[in-house]
Nucleic acid binder design. Structure first.
Lengths: 297, 297
DNA sequence: TGGGTTGATAGATATATTCTATCGTTAGGG
DNA sequence: CCCTAACGATAGAATATATCTATCAACCCA
């Protein structure tokens, strides 16, 4: 029964019987039979299908909702019982927005000291993708913006405030300044994240409200790529302060506070709002709370 | 998997492999094998057993907790999908304290008009038993005292206030009074519920605080029995006002308000605090809210 | 019309489940 | 101290379920 519910969860993710089957480690006929059996038990069609997957029926959507809960609880139960015997073990799947990647280590490092048997898988994703992954139980926690794009059932723990810096070389225009304004930044040719990233949308908004227009010379979905360009001394970018510090500044590379306005966004840990949480997840939230207070100081 | 979880829920109720098996509609070896399989999957003993059932291990208790949730959610899912097609159907299992039995009809009658395909099973139980039954998912809702003996995860809806009357014949001592005091009631030989009933404990407390002592001439766990005795004209009892009205008063049978103090207890509907509720249960709560407001008026 | 893709179906095989029958242990009574 | 009844575990057979491979039918797109 529970494995059948798992089938339709995979189907919801993949929207494709074959791929869903693969994701579940079974063959396509097995998955088809499982879905059909669920439909017979419920006495109602769950999936609209012509010659291919089309969509879930309204009843199917409701079953999906329950399935997420039931399958999640089953995993949580296994996790909890296992952790009673062996301490925390298993794999913690985290997704973070690119601009927060550098500070994930501040969370994972103390966690690992406390619970050495937990392994990590960390994905770089957009804030929207992170919420989808959480919804589909594909990750255990996300690190993303807390303020915007609120979503269904999640618990949030604030971690730190993202503040913006103009990253540029000292000999470039504005390179010698103590602060710059968003209006000035708007005049500089920038390397920025692609527009599907919320960080980019935030920066665009700030530039626009300062009367400028965002016309980056270079876009990428990789912060490393952006940074390596700035590093050459011939490009500039806007980055969160913490990230710039982590990547490393030199004499010639400066991170200049941007003012008017001195914008900030709250970044935090987001976990599925299920009670009780999986022990590994609960421990991560604990760690986040500790980290949050130490960063406040 | 889910049926195995059902096995241990039955085992927790029955504390006996054979009876638990019977309750699940399987044979004893099947249930034994199911429990053992769960234990293997979890990698830990769940049940302490010598030559007979002893207890659950700490891990077993945790699994029980999860099992209640998972099995309950599975039922809720089936219920919900079914009700999407056929309207509300199925059986609603309710347990009520004896003194509230008479007013259950005020809840079930309008419910049945709205949802004619729902069947009812109604048990008369003590308030403590009701909470246990709720915990074990053996009933869908309880009607009991809201104020005392609070318990874990339940949602309450107040229904009405229970006020006390001396039920006695007009020609008996006190029979001609408009009100009597608890101190006076303490002097009358009474027919009361057995001490495992909370109603009895409440009355005992009231008599005691009026300086009297509760020494009922007759005890029973059945309100009908108590009432039929009073009806003979040679006995007296203390009953909630609503119950006395329902059972019917005559010229010679009077229900006299008891004052000093004019005590009252809140009676309400109690359902498992699970989100979302089963549709049949949710509808019952709706009905309770409606009834509550109409009784307030 | 034809190749490629998708999901359903058939039949064979493997796995799991559940039953009946029986055994070993233990608690309690005489 | 032994006998008995009750309880839960185990063995083995019958059955049911699940899963696989192979293939088919419908559909899409060129």
């Amino acid at each position: 029964m529970i494995d059948k519910l798992d089938f339709i969860l995979a189907l919801a993710r993949e929207k494709h019987f074959g791929r869903a089957a693969e994701a579940c480690g079974v063959t396509q006929p097995t998955l088809s039979a499982g879905v059909k059996q669920l439909e017979e038990q419920m006495g109602v069609l769950l999936v609209n299908r012509g010659s291919r997957f089309q969509s879930f029926t309204p009843e199917g959507e409701r079953v999906l909702d329950w399935a997420r809960r039931i399958v999640g609880d089953t995993r949580s139960m296994r996790e909890e019982i296992n952790s009673l015997r062996h301490g925390l073990t298993g794999r913690l799947r985290i997704a973070a927005i690119p601009t927060a990647l550098a500070m994930v280590a501040a969370l994972t490092t103390p966690y690992r000291q406390r619970h050495p048997n937990v392994q990590f898988t960390i994905y770089s994703r957009t804030s929207i993708e992170i919420l989808e992954l959480l919804d589909n139980l594909e990750i255990d926690a996300g690190i993303t913006y807390l303020e915007n794009e609120p979503v269904g059932r999640v618990n949030s723990t604030p971690l730190y405030h993202e503040r913006y810096r103009l990253l540029t070389s000292a000999d470039a225009p504005l390179g010698n300044r103590e602060t710059v304004t968003w209006a000035e930044v708007a005049q500089v040719p920038l390397c920025l994240l692609t527009p599907d990233m919320q960080n980019r949308r935030i920066i665009d908004r700030l530039i626009k409200s300062a009367g400028g227009e965002s016309r980056p010379t270079l876009e990428s979905d990789s912060m490393i790529l952006l940074f390596s360009h700035v590093r050459t001394g011939r490009w500039a970018s806007v980055m969160p302060a913490k990230l710039a510090e982590t990547l490393g500044l030199t004499d010639t590379l400066r991170a200049i506070p941007i003012v008017e306005p001195e914008a900030s966004q709250t970044i935090g840990l987001v976990v599925p709002a299920r009670e009780p949480m999986m022990p590994v997840t609960a421990a991560l939230v604990e760690e986040a709370k500790r980290l949050s207070t130490s960063l406040d100081a």
